[in-house]
């Protein structure tokens, strides 16, 4: 059975998603967990572009504009997340997730 390019793109993005998922679940360093989440977001963007390229024809800008907004939201999320990491480090001198279990500093 032959494999179409769209399927190849989707396999690529699902493998990337799972690498991000494994990283986010298994590591206990907050920065690495955030980076895993970023990888999952990137895998979702890959899906948008794959369907824009090979999917049923729609308006030619749809997928591209969706990915641009998604990248903007991901940038905001990364900035806030890393600021939170720095705030947690200032309170607890540690960024292990298991020890960041209090809301009160």
């Amino acid at each position: 059975m032959s494999i179409s390019p769209l399927q190849l793109c989707l396999l690529f993005s699902s493998a990337l998603f799972c690498i991000g998922l494994i990283g986010a679940l298994s590591r206990s360093n907050t920065i690495l967990v955030l980076l895993g989440v970023e990888l999952m977001l990137n895998a979702a963007n890959l899906n948008f572009i794959a369907f824009w390229r090979y999917g049923p024809a729609t308006s030619p800008a749809t997928g591209v504009i969706f990915v641009i907004f998604s990248i903007a939201v991901a940038a905001a999320e990364a900035a806030v997340g890393l600021a939170l990491v720095i705030a947690i480090y200032r309170h607890q001198k540690n960024i292990r997730l298991q020890e960041a279990d209090r809301l009160k500093g």
């Binding site: 399927q7 699902s14 998603f17 799972c18 690498i19």
Partner: peptide, 17 residues
């Protein structure tokens, strides 16, 4: 985590293929 991720990628790849 690896078991979970492997299960997810297995389900996704099966569905895609």
């Amino acid at each position: 985590a690896i078991v979970t991720g492997g299960a997810v990628v297995g389900v996704l790849a099966g569905a895609i293929l």
